[in-house]
Design a binder for these strands. Structure first.
Length: 314
DNA sequence: TCTGGTCAAGGTGGT
DNA sequence: ACCACCTTGACCAGA
């Protein structure tokens, strides 16, 4: 079990998801922002290594407009060296990486144009993970999509479209149960038809589920991940007190997290904390899990010769 | 320099 | 048909 947080580290004075307006798109601007985002990603990775955080969701905004027609720039070639370097850092410390394209990525839309744009967006995510040189355990998680008034047809369309997606996307793609449209049971049904692994969202399941316990749900989800996919990934959050059901908490609810750790035994997985205060909750979760035999932390920084110690950080 | 309206993309659910 | 919400900060035009 590794523990992680999504996209942003609030303790650092850098943002790895900086973007700009489409209207002000230029190659110069793109290069500047991507350079910034990669530098900040490196700082997040080093922070995580230093703090025992083994799992990170990389922001979809690392390369703004990457899947938009306006972007004709070969960013993969231009940033090949830094991408490779970050990838080596990730692999050396056995960090787990995921990405989560946003809600506009809908492969089951009846609109062929929306599917095409979503496919392009997924290719970008795969390009970034490939560019980092990461193994197939680095996943891209999406939701099933919309219902469009006909669930069965919408699920059928997902299955059809999945077969048409590029292999280099498909081998990284996983689907996640959501809190409005598609509960775990639907995801498992889609898995049975396609083989796509199912990423279990504990909080969504509590809102839109059939009452299956966490333990029983994990027993169903675990076999959907093949060995090459790595450990199953999970999303965990808890309810923001007093807010509309479904709102993510500001801080880790330690007691709830410990109940989750208890209930999830003996299954092993990597858990992503979808909680607003990001790395602070990850640190609290690490502390809450410190006696859990499943917990693994990044391999500590190997000792370095003094003259090379400063180089990689510059 | 400051401020607030606005930002690529879609779908759901309420009125 | 239309709007708020999801989620979120920060970009950037205009004062």
């Amino acid at each position: 079990m590794r523990i992680g947080y999504p996209c942003i580290n609030r303790s650092l004075d850098c943002q790895g998801d900086r973007t700009f307006r489409l209207k002000s798109y230029s190659e110069g601007r793109l290069v500047e922002v991507v350079g910034n985002n990669l530098a900040c990603l490196e700082r997040m990775l080093r922070y995580n290594i230093g703090h025992g955080i083994g799992f990170l969701r990389v922001s979809s905004d690392v390369v703004p407009f990457a899947s938009h027609p306006v972007c004709a720039f070969d960013w993969q070639a231009h940033f090949q060296a830094p991408l490779r370097r970050l990838g080596r850092l990730i692999r050396r410390h056995r960090l787990r990486i995921s990405m989560h394209p946003d809600q506009f990525t809908l492969i089951n839309s009846p609109d062929a144009g929306i599917f095409a744009r979503s496919h392009a967006e997924l290719r970008y995510h795969a390009d970034l993970l490939d560019g980092l040189g990461l193994g197939l355990d680095a996943k891209i998680q999406i939701h099933v999509g919309g219902v469009y008034g006909e669930r069965d047809a919408a699920i059928g369309r997902f299955i059809e479209r999945y077969a048409r997606i590029d292999e280099r996307v498909r081998r990284r793609l996983v689907i996640e149960n959501d809190e409005r449209c598609y509960p775990l049971a639907d995801c498992l049904r889609i898995h049975a038809a396609t083989g796509v692994p199912v990423l279990f969202d504990v909080f969504h399941h509590a809102i839109l589920g059939d009452g299956t316990t966490v333990g029983a749900a994990l027993a169903q989800v675990a076999p959907t991940w093949r060995p090459a996919d790595g450990l199953p990934m999970l999303d965990y959050s808890s309810q923001k007190p007093g807010a509309r059901p479904g709102m993510h908490a500001e801080h880790l609810d330690r007691a709830d997290f410990q109940r989750f750790l208890q209930a999830s035994r003996p299954h092993d997985f990597d858990v992503m904390l979808e909680i607003k205060d990001k790395e602070r909750s990850a640190l609290a979760a690490l502390d809450a899990a410190r006696r859990d035999p499943r917990l693994v932390c990044p391999v500590p920084q190997p000792p370095r010769r003094p003259e090379s110690a400063g180089k990689e950080r510059s």
